[in-house]
Computed example of a mutant assay.
Amino acid sequence: MTAYDIAPESARITATPAAATRVYNRAVGYYRAWKNRRAFYRLGEMSDAELADIGLTRADLFVAVDLPFGSDPTVKLRSIAGLRAASVEELARKVA
């Protein structure tokens, strides 16, 4: 006899929705990553000046495009832009 055989009925019922929720959340995550990847490819059509306006360079796009398909490249771009902004602010404080 296993622990599953003697587990109360309520424990068995709650296990199934948790698994279904994980599957649902994973599917939603993949859809969001796919949607953001489509928007990411539109960034490649922007000029270098437009990318600079939003705090990115063309090299940043090449770094983010190498991520696996299931991952979201916009998360990597947000990280890169945030680190660049923080380093610029730190440099400005040292100069001032």
Rank of each mutant, 00 (worst) to 15 (best):
R37Q: 10
I80C: 02
A64W: 06
K35I: 04
Y41V: 01
T57F: 01
G82Q: 13
E9K: 11
W34K: 00
A59C: 04
N25S: 07
P68D: 11
M46K: 06
V63P: 01
F69R: 05
D5C: 04
Y4F: 13
Y24I: 06
A19W: 03
S47D: 15
D48A: 15
L83V: 13
M1S: 03
K94G: 14
A11Y: 14
P73V: 00
R38E: 03
Y24L: 06
K94N: 10
D5R: 06
A7T: 05
K35C: 05
A52L: 12
I54A: 12
A49Q: 15
A81K: 12
A18N: 12
R32V: 04
A33K: 01
A15H: 08
G82S: 15
N36T: 01
R93F: 04
E50G: 15
S10A: 09
S10W: 10
A20Q: 08
K76D: 15
E9A: 11
A39V: 00
R32M: 04
R58Y: 10
E9Q: 14
R78K: 00
L61D: 05
P17Q: 05
S10P: 02
R22K: 10
D60L: 03
S71G: 07
V95T: 13
A20G: 05
A52W: 08
R37H: 02
R93L: 13
E89C: 12
R84L: 12
V88P: 15
T14N: 04
P73F: 04
V63L: 05
F62Y: 09
D53K: 15
A39F: 02
V28F: 02
R22Y: 06
L61F: 07
V95L: 14
S79Q: 09
A59S: 14
L91G: 11
A86Q: 14
R78E: 11
R26L: 10
W34V: 00
T21S: 09
G44W: 09
P8S: 03
F40G: 08
V23W: 06
F62K: 10
E90F: 14
L67A: 06
Y41L: 09
K76V: 08
A7H: 01
R12A: 08
V75M: 02
A27F: 05
Y24F: 07
R22V: 05
T16H: 07
L67M: 03
D60M: 00
R26A: 05
A20K: 00
A33P: 11
E90Q: 12
R93Q: 13
A86R: 07
A19T: 13
A59T: 01
E89Y: 10
T2F: 09
Y31F: 06
T2K: 01
L61V: 00
K35D: 06
S47W: 12
E45G: 11
Y31E: 09
I54P: 15
T21N: 09
R32H: 05
V28I: 10
L83F: 08
G82T: 13
R93T: 11
A92Y: 11
D5T: 06
A52Q: 13
L51E: 12
A81G: 12
K35Q: 01
A19I: 07
M1P: 07
R37P: 03
L56A: 12
N36Q: 02
P68F: 03
V75K: 11
R22F: 01
A86S: 14
A64L: 02
E89L: 13
R42C: 05
R38P: 09
E50F: 15
D66G: 04
L43Y: 11
Y31L: 10
A20V: 03
L67I: 00
